[in-house]
């Protein structure tokens, strides 16, 4: 079992292939890996509730073991309140991200 950190900076509105990273997170989790999907920049547009066809919702159903986190600055920068985020999303920050980035046992992917 490997550790994966998938960092999603894109959103499904500007980029049509965003579900690629969500699908990858789900598939890696199904393979028995420990997966974190970290939303940053416009990736946090999926953190609000009531987002149309929200890939976070689908991922939570498909692979509930995937940990989904959202960068606090990216949320604040966009005026997205940390109260009432989409279910299953944990607010995180770059300090926490760095802790994983420097872990030599973690495979990291930026998208």
């Amino acid at each position: 079992m490997a550790q994966y950190l998938l960092i999603e900076s894109r959103d499904p509105f500007e980029f049509a292939d965003t579900t690629y990273m969500y699908d990858m997170a789900g598939d890696l989790s199904k393979n028995g890996n420990n997966v974190t999907l970290f939303l940053i920049q416009n990736g946090v547009f999926c953190a609000r509730q009531n987002v149309k066809n929200n890939p976070v919702t689908s991922l939570r159903q498909k692979a509930p073991g995937v940990r989904v986190e959202a960068d606090d600055f990216s949320l604040r920068e966009r005026g997205i309140s940390t109260e009432g985020l989409e279910s299953g999303i944990t607010v995180s920050n770059v300090d926490n991200l760095v802790d994983r980035l420097v872990d030599s046992d973690t495979k990291i992917v930026w998208h």
């Binding site: 600055f73 770059v94 300090d95 991200l97 760095v98 802790d99 980035l101 420097v102």
Partner: peptide, 10 residues
């Protein structure tokens, strides 16, 4: 830049 800053702070 934020990641680099956080890493060096740590």
């Amino acid at each position: 830049m934020r990641i680099v800053d956080a890493a060096v702070r740590k």
